[in-house]
Design a binder for these strands. Structure first.
Lengths: 202, 202, 202, 202
DNA sequence: CATGAATGAGAATTCATTCAT
DNA sequence: CATGAATGAATTCTCATTCAT
């Protein structure tokens, strides 16, 4: 990649950065290109040299966010053996990611919850695929955990549902409460894992 | 209330019903009055005989949904003594409510997650108040549960965060999966409660 | 005219009274039928039993106002001989009329100034006719006044233009200033007449 | 000011020119943005790149017209010494202005007469201020004229009222009659001044 | 490439008029 | 007759997209 291409990519990224913040704050419909132009400090027309439509900006952003998400999951899957470690490390990673990429996380959450932000079936497909992937990793680890008597013989479909709920919403609450300090990330992950494995019973 | 007033109320409700469905599907911004008019089978102008603006429709709906939500929580709070029962019954009630009022639930979830759908600080206030109320009920029951050694001495702020995450997101997943049958509602509630109390550990 | 007809006429007059006030305050376009309905304490539909359109209400009102105006002029014309008396008495009458029918006067002024309030050529015709009539009376009296050496041999077209300007705008200023007391009406009329005849020169 | 800014200003002026004509013809309420767009030969949306609302267009226009009006008065005030000259020159100037800016004059007249065209208190304030200023200049010159025995000891409040009436309404009549030729402007001004000072008496 | 002026399709809202009760 | 609910055409305003410079 020569200088020209590198610069082009850099400018494109500037636009994405600006757009992400506004999309995360206002949602797809309520975000205007004027705002993106202003925040990215480019002219409105310039944006169309990098993206062919507002929807494309959104799609590209959300696709990239999901990819990062996937990479994290994949890495943790490879790095860990027991379900317990998988859960704790995945949570820690996701919490860390959310903290460092608050807007990405929020956008992911919106898109997850509210798929019709955009009419794009492309995005739906990617989201579903992502969900599917995460489920696979979890089920694999969990199945083995049941075999190894690490955990009880629970209904895995339900547990993954519950786990996903935790993952997303707990982190969201942490984010908006503003209490998410770097030094407590591992602690938060441990806490959720503890409850998930041991329950709150006396 | 005479016939005329009853009819008027009925028609207003027809509009609300239609609007709720579209708001829940598309969100506030992406919902147009033309759609509401068409779905409610009224003329566009007619809507304005019942509401003074699009925002008023939204506010009225979300306020009413939150009220229903509150009533459920309050009832379960009075009806139950132990935290275990409170959690199980509340989950069952919320699951049942969501099943019967899918759109209401989705709208609540959107508004919770994405407060800037509407600029209305009024709605924010109501939402915060609702969150606060639910927290209070939970904390009260949980504090006593700790005293009574029903549960361990866990960090309540975290547990409520976790529980709320469960409540919302688990139900959402159930809803979109389309697997939420009436006969399994109590079972689902029991399952979550079981995990929350006993964990998944072998 | 039997009771029924008298009542009908009475109700029609109630509507006219209400409409006149609002038209005078806001102008034709900015006045809504809802306002007229509310002010007249009739249902909106009822108004259409008495008038076939908003424009008809306006036309009927303005026509009636112009008629009253004409009657005054005609009466003063008959009652007076010299131009001086004609001018003074006409001014006094018009000032009195404006004071007692503020809205009518304002409406007349608007319609005079701003004929395109309504597209109605009917109104234009009536207004022009009114103007014409007033001019005729004035010119007749003035011509004789020149003959009789009551006044100099001035350009009558110009004087009538000047006089009309006085009549309307002076009264308007008096009206909005709120300083128009019954006991000063004749005095005001005398003042204008004095200036018109004698000028302000030392 | 560079080329871009000059062009922008020029286009803005094109819009103002078109809007002025229509406002003057139909009044504020009855003028639509579609008409302004069509007359100015811009797209409807383009107008909003120059003004943020219909009301802003109106306000800007009327403000500018009043300013021009003020400038004329001020200039004449400085240029003349006696009341007689002030009156004659002011009338001539105003007549000339009205002839060359028919629409501006009409708009001024409407706004004066019918302040509720727009709800804007801003405009009311400006209008009142303008009225006030004109009164001050007149009163100052007239007071001195009384001292100097240029004119009789007349009630100045009344004379200014009368003079304003003349100024506005006489010119209006001239305008609509279409008889206002450049070569007669000074003559018209002389005529009115003559009557005001000497009266029409023989 | 960068820009921002121009645009019109589309959105919310208003209101005169109709009409069933 | 009286009423006011229903309506859609008309109006103001927004914004993604195009395009000339």
């Amino acid at each position: 990649m020569n200088r020209r291409e590198r610069e082009k990519l850099f400018r494109k990224h500037e636009i994405i950065k600006a757009a992400l913040q506004i999309f995360a704050q206002k949602g797809y419909k309520a975000t205007t290109l004027d705002e993106i132009a202003e925040k990215s400090e480019f002219g409105k027309g310039t944006i169309y040299n990098y993206f062919s439509s507002k929807e494309e900006i959104y799609t590209e952003i959300i696709t990239s966010v999901i990819e990062q998400h996937q990479i994290i999951i994949r890495k943790i899957d490879e790095k860990t053996v027991t379900l317990h470690d998988f859960v704790e490390e995945l949570l820690a990673s996701l919490i860390r990611f959310s903290r460092e990429n608050k807007e990405s996380f929020l956008l992911l959450l919106f898109t997850e919850i509210h798929q019709s932000f955009t009419a794009s079936t492309e995005i739906s497909r990617i989201m579903d695929n992502n969900k599917q992937k995460m489920t696979e990793f979890f089920v694999q680890k969990a199945s083995k955990a049941i075999e190894n008597k690490e955990i009880r013989d629970v209904d895995l479909e339900r547990v993954i549902r519950l786990f996903r709920g935790l993952g997303f919403n707990y982190i969201y609450d942490l984010l908006v409460s503003g209490k998410l300090k770097e030094e407590f990330i591992q602690e938060e992950a441990k806490f959720i894992t503890d409850i998930l494995f041991n329950g709150i019973k006396y």
